[in-house]
């Protein structure tokens, strides 16, 4: 598979919040995402609970199962082992923190079943 390593996870990357404030990716906090979504006119935050992590070492990926948002939608995604997800109150977390550190220089916690991640959806357009 064609694996994708987004540059914005590289330690030191500059991230702009909704209020215009600039922060380094490694310094982001839960509130930064929550407040940015509140200011945003069309995006809102969903809580996505990790319910499954299936390692796929041949591809350097993992199959992740999430239960997403108030409607508990079941979603399955394939992500690289080093891909950082932002866990409420915990920060950046991945399936293989050592690989995240090596790839991005970004300190990550170990992502585990039961962790609640920040994801986005579009606000209901009235």
């Amino acid at each position: 598979p064609q694996l994708h390593y987004p540059p914005h996870f590289m330690k030191g990357s500059i991230i702009q919040l909704s209020n215009g404030e600039l922060k380094r990716v490694e310094d982001l906090q839960t509130d930064d995402f929550v407040q940015s979504a509140e200011i945003s006119s069309d995006l809102k935050i969903d809580s996505s609970t990790v319910v499954k992590i299936e390692f796929n070492p041949d591809h350097s990926t993992a199959i992740l199962g999430f239960v997403v948002g108030e409607h508990k939608v079941q979603v399955t995604v394939e992500a690289t082992l080093e891909h950082p997800f932002f866990v409420f109150g915990q920060g950046w977390s991945s399936c293989e923190p050592d690989r995240s550190l090596h790839r991005y220089g970004l300190d990550c916690q170990k992502l585990s079943v039961g962790d609640v991640c920040i994801s986005l959806t579009h606000k209901d357009v009235q």
Binding site: H8, I15, V25, L28, S36, S48, H71, F86, T121
Partner: peptide, 19 residues
Amino acid sequence: VPVFPWHALVPFLTNTGPP
């Protein structure tokens, strides 16, 4: 120096509205 928007860092896992 590139500046990335905050919403690029977290995934969109569902589309809008209830199923």
